[in-house]
């Protein structure tokens, strides 16, 4: 009898310990929200929201300080668009190849091969963009600066490609065989079947994969910090140095900005914008994928 009571007490302690492990993830989320919110609120006691949203210059480190977020947003939008423009066509075509054409044995080699692309550390991609891709682009494109949005954008596109291809492949594989058979029975060619039947049927899953890849591109840090430059500039020219939101956070962190100063708080304000953007996209992508699984 005694043993049972002791054992239930012990069992309850184990349960409590495991529960607290699981709660660490909740605490992490609360921690991120708390840190971002508290420093961002402190930031906005010194800088007005209208300056943040309406000014088109970002110069917190200059004597003449401006706190307009748009140059950083433009830099982020530019590198991310290049990345998406690289990753989506390649990723989609490779998803089609994997699900429709690839012989099983070749697929068994190609698929893990592509997954490796997502596992290479971003610092390595940054080096590759700066040292290899940029000089190649400079040879082709006139007025291409040593730091630019195009080169890191392309390399980032290669990095996020496996995300587009593997999620799109799942979506394509989920298209019922009866739809394809119906198309063939009506005399449709292979290409017509893929483009008019299979891809439209898989579209919500494909869009979900693209949004998720976009979210990853927006949050990617080291590639752009190394190869895109660190000059906040309100431009959509992919040939000149720019600065993304993430690269700005790295730039300030590399320097010795004292705690509690306005400059220090800017990285949390920028971080908040980054968090809201990526969270919204992850949420949207999740909703789309849910719709897909429910439709099955």
């Amino acid at each position: 009898m005694n043993r049972t009571t002791a054992s239930t007490g012990f069992e309850r302690a184990v349960y409590a310990a495991l529960l607290s492990c699981a709660l660490v993830s909740i605490v992490t989320t609360v921690g991120i929200l708390y840190v971002l919110a508290s420093e961002t609120v402190a930031f906005f006691t010194e800088v007005s929201l209208s300056e943040f949203l309406l000014d088109t210059q970002w110069t917190p480190l200059f004597a003449d300080k401006h706190f307009g977020i748009w140059p950083l947003v433009a830099g982020t939008a530019l590198t991310s668009s290049v990345a998406i423009a690289t990753a989506v066509p390649l990723g989609l075509l490779s998803a089609i190849y994997m699900s429709e054409f690839a012989p099983r044995r070749l697929r068994a080699v190609l698929k893990p091969g592509l997954e490796i692309l997502a596992g290479v550390p971003t610092i390595v991609y940054g080096y590759f963009a700066l040292v290899v891709v940029t000089p190649v682009l400079q040879a082709w494109i006139p007025d291409m600066a040593g730091f630019n949005a195009l080169s890191p954008g392309i390399v980032m596109g290669i990095m996020i490609l496996p995300m587009v291809s593997s999620l799109s492949e799942d979506a394509i594989a989920a298209v019922p065989a009866t739809l394809r058979e119906g198309a063939y029975a009506l005399g449709a060619t292979e290409l017509a079947t893929i483009f008019r039947v299979v891809l439209p049927a898989a579209s919500s899953g494909i869009v979900a994969s693209v949004i998720l890849a976009l979210s990853r591109a927006i949050g990617e840090t080291m590639i752009v910090a190394i190869a895109a430059g660190q000059q906040a500039r309100f431009t959509l020219d992919p040939r000149v140095p720019i600065e993304t939101m993430t690269a700005y956070i790295v730039q300030i962190s590399m320097g010795d900005t004292p705690t509690g100063t306005l400059e220090y708080r800017t990285i949390f304000a920028v971080g908040s914008v980054l968090f809201v953007l990526t969270f919204a996209m992850n949420y949207l992508s999740h909703k789309l994928r849910r719709r897909l699984t429910l439709a099955e």
Binding site: G31, I32, V35, L212, G219, V250, L274, F275, T278
Partner: peptide, 19 residues
């Protein structure tokens, strides 16, 4: 919550650690 955390950019974990 865990699924959401997996999508948070790593640089934001840096801000969490700093704060």
């Amino acid at each position: 919550n865990i699924a959401n955390l997996a999508g948070v950019p790593s640089v934001l974990y840096g801000l969490l650690g700093l704060g």
